Computed example of a mutant assay.
Amino acid sequence: MPAKSPYDAVILGAGILGLATADALTSAGLRVAIIARDLPEDLDSAAFASPWAGANWSSFASNEKERRRDTITFAKFAEFAETNPSLARRTPFCYIWHTDAGYSNPWYKNVVYNFRPLAKSEVPKAYKEGVQFESFTVNPPRILAYLAGRLRDAGVPIVRRRVASIDEAFSAFGEVSLVVNATGLGARGLLGVEDPLVHPVRGQTVLARAPGVQTCYGVRDSNLPPGEAVYIIPRPGSDGCVILGGTNLKDDYSTLPRKETAERILQNAYKVCPALAGPHGTSWKDIEIVAHNVGLRPSREGGLRLEIEEREIKHDYLLPAAAASTPRKVAVLHCYGIGPAGYQASFGVAQEAKELVTGYLSKAQAAKL
Rank of each mutant, 00 (worst) to 15 (best):
P340F: 00
G348S: 05
R328S: 12
A345R: 09
G342H: 06
L319Y: 01
L319E: 00
A322L: 10
E309F: 14
I313D: 10
I338E: 11
E355H: 08
E310R: 12
A323K: 04
I308T: 07
D316H: 11
Y343I: 12
E309L: 14
A341H: 13
S346L: 02
E307S: 14
C335P: 08
K314M: 11
L356D: 07
R328E: 10
A350S: 02
Y317E: 15
Y336G: 08
R305Y: 01
P327V: 11
A353N: 02
F347M: 06
A345K: 10
A350Q: 04
E309I: 14
Q344K: 13
C335M: 07
E307I: 00
A331V: 06
A350T: 01
L304W: 00
V349R: 01
V330K: 09
E307H: 08
Y336V: 12
Y317A: 15
H315M: 15
A331L: 12
P340G: 05
E312H: 10
S325Y: 14
K329I: 12
S346V: 09
D316A: 02
I308A: 05
S346N: 00
L306T: 09
G342R: 02
R311Y: 03
G348D: 00
Y317V: 13
L333T: 11
E307W: 00
I313G: 13
R311N: 04
A321V: 15
A341T: 09
E352W: 05
Y336S: 05
